[in-house]
Design a protein around this nucleic acid. Structure first.
Lengths: 224, 224
DNA sequence: CTAATGCTATTTGTATACAATAAGCTGTCA
DNA sequence: TGACAGCTTATTGTATACAAATAGCATTAG
């Protein structure tokens, strides 16, 4: 995508992800155009894309709204993600190169560093985690799979609490990556897939717990 | 989508599906606009959509080309489809209503009629087959799953041969539907998923065989 | 003859004006 | 009061003009 379109897409997406655009609220093309400093044309492109990715929904008369996800929606997305990412792991196990394996090891080492007590470096963790998964997806060598995973990987769910990043979860995540590495090393696709399923499921429950806490906070803050 | 956009999308899509737009060939927005009788704006919308659905690919300088699928691509799509549609069947098994079950039975009965010797009514078969699967997808009640399946269900592969519609395959397809119906009746999600996997895999091999035959015909027709 | 450079034509990207459609409001009538 | 009709406003859809980028070709230097 070219400059204005790209800019609009990223801008709108990050506004949704950050909660700046509230779930359920209507969004008007012209307002977004002003916010992004472009005309409606690239904004419309972006909206179409975000609609396909289910960040935005449209009612029957073509008005756009920021998607408002229920816990069920979240679980559905995570289940789909577990299924797809397991498949990626399975395919990757038989295709991954020595170089890619080395890269995985590198990122997982960085991950471990990021956990380092007493203060975990969450942004660093997230970055290397993202790259770790990206390498597996690349090794899986299925463009379609990659496309689909793109659609379920980022969740437009804003959490006030940071529960999902607690130390225990970070540690487990890292250790699951370790196990994945062994499975890849043994070229055991079934094993890799199984580990990946657990990995994503665990992530879901961490998310879900934070989501529940968050929802309660939101509910009880009607008084504020 | 509104009128012009809708029209352009359907028109372009059917031109790809029918082979009117050759795989690998470049497509220009203005040319399509003329063909569809609309301006470039709705054409561009359609191209974006078709690109997301992988009917169209773009090179690094934003030129669009009709996707040219290899046998590997085809298998990848079918595997993804098997996975997703099995999941749909599994979910449907525990959610399907009596009415939906009755509808499934109806469409499967029509399917049987369409096979009727000596001349199978292929369009009728395809129509009821489509509806059969649509009902299962609806019963699965996952919008995301439905979206994703939409992306792998129709294959932009044009076959000169009609091998994939041979009588034996139609019969097996119908009988697999029968088995699905029993699995649904017993609310056995695992069974339904397993049957569905086989159902899609069989369809793939029918397709693949036709594709191979077709490719050979294409190759040997360089002389013509 | 090859490769690099600059020009031209082609194609896509963006902005904007206008058309079509839907929503919201207001006033009237039952 | 309530609901319906018609008007007004808000919002999205489409066409088109123009800007930017790219590719293809020709010309020339090495």
């Amino acid at each position: 995508m070219s400059r204005a379109s790209e800019r609009a897409y990223n801008h709108i997406r990050s506004m949704i992800l950050s909660g700046e655009l509230q779930p359920g609220s209507q969004i008007r093309e012209e307002a977004l155009a002003e916010l992004c400093g472009v005309s409606r044309t690239p904004v419309r492109d972006s909206l179409r894309r975000l609609e396909a990715e289910m960040f935005i929904r449209r009612n029957d008369s073509q008005r756009s709204f920021v998607a408002d996800w229920s816990l069920d929606d979240l679980e559905d997305a995570f289940q789909l993600r577990a299924m797809l990412e397991s498949r990626a792991a399975k395919r990757a196990a038989s295709r991954i190169t020595r170089e890619q394996l080395a890269l995985l090891r590198f990122h997982n080492a960085q991950l471990k560093q990021a956990i380092g007590l007493p203060n975990p470096d969450v942004p660093k963790f997230l970055d290397h985690n993202r790259q770790f998964h990206a390498i597996i997806l690349a090794a899986a060598a299925s463009e379609r799979l990659a496309n689909m995973l793109g659609q379920v990987t980022e969740q437009p769910v804003i959490l006030r609490t940071a529960r999902q990043y607690d130390l225990e979860n970070l540690r487990r995540s890292h250790s699951e990556h370790d196990e994945l590495l062994i499975a890849f090393d043994k070229r055991d696709g079934e094993w890799a897939a199984a580990v990946m399923t657990g990995h994503i499921r665990r992530a879901f429950h961490a998310y879900a717990e934070a989501h529940s806490t968050d929802t309660e906070i939101r509910k009880s803050s009607w008084a504020a």
